[in-house]
Design a protein around this nucleic acid. Structure first.
Length: 257
DNA sequence: ATGTCAATTTTAAATTGA
């Protein structure tokens, strides 16, 4: 079974490319982020025409997450993270699908550092860690998939100097990432590519970053021990980033037994 | 700050959020 996470950067702007990718790769489960579309305007019929059903958590203008499955209706468990009733951003959705618990995560970007946006990011990560601990205690296969807006280590970005002031590389961001992951999660992509020096999932639109392979590893799939036992592979659909009108992220996936 | 992009409003040019 293949489970892919994909930050679309606008599902309406990306629709033809997205549907082509879906037909070509045929993943069993898809976690989407940055739909940038109100729930009532989502192109759900186009997705259903390809045999997928979903749970959707849209928002006008920005954010927005979803979980799709081929030939199965995911069962919604939760929209939004617990811990802050004033948080209205559509950044988290969780469902039961194919015997797994799956979350689609769009973690706050947090730029610029030193502002309320960065504080929101760190608080959001604290809330995610608390919820992830709750999920681990279920002792079931769980996959936390999405755009984490975290560069876990220096080697996960083309230049740590050029990105020293970016929220995705800050020590406080990495501290939160490590505290969460060290609770018992497996970073599946790195586990299958332990020595790859250019294991990237995002390339900025500016400055010819894609053409020069100046990327970041921001999209992650964290597996609970019960899910990690079933891991058989992980990778990045780099080809999709090179298409016309591509998202700035590439689809990132795992294979599970 | 940007060799950029999408959505939205202040609607055809500026603002927000990547």
């Amino acid at each position: 079974m293949k489970l892919t996470t994909y930050n679309l950067n606008g599902i309406r702007a990306r629709l033809p490319r997205f549907l082509e990718w879906l037909e070509r790769e045929r993943p069993d489960i898809v976690c989407l982020q940055e739909l940038k579309c109100a729930t009532e305007l989502l192109p759900t019929a186009d997705v259903e025409a390809l045999g997928y059903q979903g749970v959707w958590h849209g928002q006008k203008g920005f954010n927005g997450v979803a979980i799709l499955a081929r030939g199965e209706q995911p069962q919604l468990r939760r929209e939004g993270l617990p811990g802050d009733p004033d948080d209205t951003h559509s950044r988290y959705i969780e469902a039961e699908v194919a015997g797994l618990i799956v979350a689609s995560i769009y973690l706050p970007n947090g730029n610029p550092v030193g502002t309320e946006k960065f504080d929101y990011k760190i608080r959001w990560m604290e809330r995610l860690r608390e919820h992830s601990d709750t999920l681990l205690r279920e002792e079931r296969p769980v996959v936390l998939a999405g755009d984490w807006n975290v560069v876990p280590e220096d080697r996960d970005v083309f230049s740590i100097g050029a990105t020293a002031h970016d929220a995705v590389t800050q020590p406080a961001t990495r501290d939160q990432w490590r505290r969460l992951a060290n609770g018992g999660w497996t970073d599946a992509l790195r586990a299958f590519h332990p020595e790859d020096p250019k294991l990237y999932t995002f390339w900025d639109y500016t400055a010819g970053c894609w053409q020069r392979d100046l990327g970041f590893r921001l999209d992650h799939l964290l597996c609970s021990p019960e899910a990690a036992d079933r891991l058989r592979g992980a990778g990045v659909d780099r080809w999709a980033r090179g298409e016309e009108k591509a998202s700035d992220h590439a689809p990132t996936w795992i294979e599970l037994a």
